[in-house]
């Protein structure tokens, strides 16, 4: 009974009973953007993210040091005008190192999240919609991957990408990230499948893949977007974890994980070696989480409107 005033009287619904008035067609994207912009923490997160991006990629052009360049005049020197973040024991500039690491994290997060969410969406949607043997096979694969300890597997495989591009590593990380989402996508597909507009399309003769691409996946776009943002921070942290123990990014390349790992012990005596990389890592995760939270509120506003914003 869609028209009945629901027992949970949402003011938005009460207002919407009026049907077509003089309002122009507000596209959903604009509506979401408007809601997002209203929340200050979310905007702060987005701005911080943009700044971190800028610093990570433009920063290295501003200073005269490369990340793998030694300054034999300054070993373990604290932050100064020459070396903004100080230097390490061997003479590397910490700022350059941090920026290089930050770049890595950004790539891991964004590329990995896109891969992971896309895979989860496709597997989950087809598995849920088609059912049958395909569903059983895919679910078994998902269960298997969930049971395998990803940390161990990726760590064991780390020598493989020692000689190749480190993107193999990103790929592996994403390969162990998509399973839980796929299960949820499957559940969402199962319930969307029974929705009348999907049945209507089926009874029109629309082929299966078109139904999934046109009706099912767009209607869980909010969930997919939110999940992608969560994946970004999970992947970044997974990379840090592996690199910390030496199983991820390999020397001479650096990531925030390797920096933290190498310098955790020295945190008391030479704090700049540890706190700058970790500080940037925390800032990055925080910014992503704020944006993710803001997106979640903008896409599916459940909170009662207080009239104060």
């Amino acid at each position: 009974m869609a028209e009945r005033a629901s027992s949970q009287l949402l003011p938005e619904q009460a207002g919407a009973a009026g049907g077509l008035d003089a309002t122009e067609a507000v596209s959903r994207t604009r509506l979401v953007a408007r809601r997002f912009v209203r929340r200050r923490p979310a905007v702060a997160g987005l701005v911080s993210l943009a700044l971190l991006f800028a610093v990570a990629y433009l920063g290295p052009f501003v200073i005269p040091w490369q990340y793998d360049q030694l300054d034999t005049n300054a070993f373990l020197s604290p932050p100064s005008a020459v070396h903004w973040f100080g230097t390490t024991q061997t003479g590397f500039d910490v700022f350059a190192l941090t920026m290089r690491g930050l770049q890595k994290s950004l790539i891991v997060g964004l590329l990995g999240a896109v891969m992971s969410t896309a895979l989860a969406a496709i597997v989950g949607a087809f598995s849920g919609y088609l059912g049958g043997t395909l569903n059983t096979v895919l679910l078994t694969i998902i269960d298997l991957l969930l049971v395998l300890p990803s940390f161990l597997i990726i760590a064991i495989l780390s020598p493989l990408f020692r000689d190749h591009t480190w993107l193999v590593f990103v790929f592996l990380l994403a390969a162990f990230q998509w399973m839980v989402t796929a299960r949820i996508v499957r559940g969402l597909t199962l319930s969307l499948k029974e929705r009348e507009f999907v049945t209507a399309a089926r009874f029109m003769g629309v082929p299966t893949w078109q139904i999934i691409a046109r009706h099912i996946l767009p209607n869980m776009a909010s969930f997919l977007i939110i999940d992608a943002t969560i994946n970004v921070s999970s992947l970044i942290l997974a990379e840090v974890g592996l690199s910390f123990f030496g199983f991820g990014v390999q020397p001479p390349d650096v990531s925030l994980g390797t920096l933290i790992g190498d310098n955790a012990g020295a945190a008391l005596s030479y704090p700049w070696e540890f706190y700058f990389p970790s500080g940037f890592l925390v800032a990055l995760i925080l910014a992503i989480n704020l944006v993710g939270d803001g997106l979640r509120d903008a896409l599916d506003p459940n909170a009662v409107f207080q009239g104060r914003r």
Binding site: A2, E196, F197, T199, A200, A201, M204, G205, V206, Q210
Partner: peptide, 30 residues
């Protein structure tokens, strides 16, 4: 030749598509 109208108008139209597209879907499919 055999078509259907559902009970809940809110649920039977894809909320993400403008109604022009909704009406065009059966035509385009055929």
């Amino acid at each position: 030749d055999l078509q259907v109208v559902f009970q809940d108008p809110l649920a039977s139209l894809d909320p993400r598509l403008p109604i022009g597209d909704i009406l065009a879907e059966p035509l385009a499919t055929h």
